[in-house]
């Protein structure tokens, strides 16, 4: 029975099925907010699910120049990495599947892994657009990874721990004192998460007006569906991580609090997406090193001063 319970955790809750469906729900929230900001009605709530089902029933094409093994294997691994990251997040009153001191680093590692897998996905697809997109993805990785980690470490400094559940408890107890201090880090982490998820204005790696679709150019059918699901799962992990560290509403409201804080994070990301145009790749790097990193360092300094 133990084995079955573990399998249930991995595949249904809080594993694969929950992450994927919650990710598709957040995609709808994102698209709906984006549409409302453009004064549109936007897609119906079931749109992301139908998109996914359609992709799973389309023809599978492996291009001649692609590496067939990597072409099939990498999208699945990408989804697996993103879903595994979520297993280490406590949410809505549930503790994570395997809590241990230092799980913050593991979650960040899995998020990094899926970016590197995206690089490989483009590299092995045998398309020049895929390769250019891959190289841009790696260049952008140099831009946002440092500010993202620095800003995620600010609550960890305040709590004096690397364990997400401990940080969450400390932040929830001192929310009124700590939230103003972490606001700077919260802003930086939202911007860098936007870069991590390759969304406007940091979508140079997938710029469809320049390089078709970047790393995803050659992907069709269910492989594309896997990559898209992995992106949604990354969105869930990113939003869940920020909501755990900065906005631990679920200590008060339970599961609803987790949903609310994730939707708040996604709202911030959608506002960014709706209000800016795409940056060139060198501007992304420049903005990151000129502004994001100094501000995240400032956030850390503030945290150290407040903690005393």
């Amino acid at each position: 029975m133990d084995f079955l319970a573990d399998l249930f955790k991995l595949l249904v809750f809080p594993g694969f099925l929950f992450v994927v469906n919650f990710g598709l729900f957040l995609e709808w929230v994102d698209r709906k907010i984006y549409a409302r900001m453009q004064h549109r009605v936007g897609p119906p709530w079931y749109q992301p699910w139908l998109d996914t089902i359609k992709l799973f029933t389309k023809e599978d094409v492996i291009p001649e120049k692609a590496n067939p093994f990597m072409f099939t294997f990498l999208p699945v691994l990408d989804l697996a990495a993103a879903v595994t990251a979520f297993l280490y997040l406590p949410f809505g009153g549930f503790s994570s599947v395997n809590p241990f001191p230092g799980d913050l680093v593991v979650v960040v590692f899995f998020l990094t892994l899926s970016t590197l897998l995206l690089f490989l996905i483009g590299w092995y697809s045998g398309s020049p657009f895929g390769r250019v997109g891959s190289l841009r993805a790696v260049t952008q990785f140099l831009a946002y990874e440092v500010p993202l980690v620095l800003s995620l470490l600010t609550p960890a400094l305040l709590a004096g721990s690397w364990s997400i559940s401990t940080i969450k408890i400390v932040m929830a107890q001192n929310l009124s004192r700590f939230l103003p201090v972490t606001l700077l880090a919260l802003a930086v982490s939202l911007l860098s998460l936007q870069g991590k998820l390759l969304r406007v204005p940091f979508d140079a790696p997938e710029a469809e007006t320049e390089i078709v679709a970047g790393p995803l150019t050659e992907y069709t059918g269910r492989r594309l569906a896997f990559i898209r699901l992995a992106e949604r799962a990354e969105l869930v992990v990113g939003a869940g991580l920020i909501s755990n560290l900065f906005l631990p509403f679920d200590k008060v409201l339970g599961m609803l609090g987790f949903f609310v804080s994730c939707v708040v994070v996604v709202f911030g990301l959608s506002v960014l997406r709706a209000s800016f145009a795409r940056l060139r790749i060198e501007d992304t790097t420049l903005i990151s090193w000129k502004y994001l990193i100094p501000f995240s360092a400032l956030g850390m300094a503030l945290a150290i001063m407040v903690r005393g």
């Binding site: 007006t209 078709v212 679709a213 150019t217 992907y219 069709t220 594309l224």
Partner: peptide, 10 residues
């Protein structure tokens, strides 16, 4: 549900 895609593969 109409979305404009850059790649004919999609």
């Amino acid at each position: 549900g109409i979305q404009l895609k850059g790649s004919p593969r999609h």
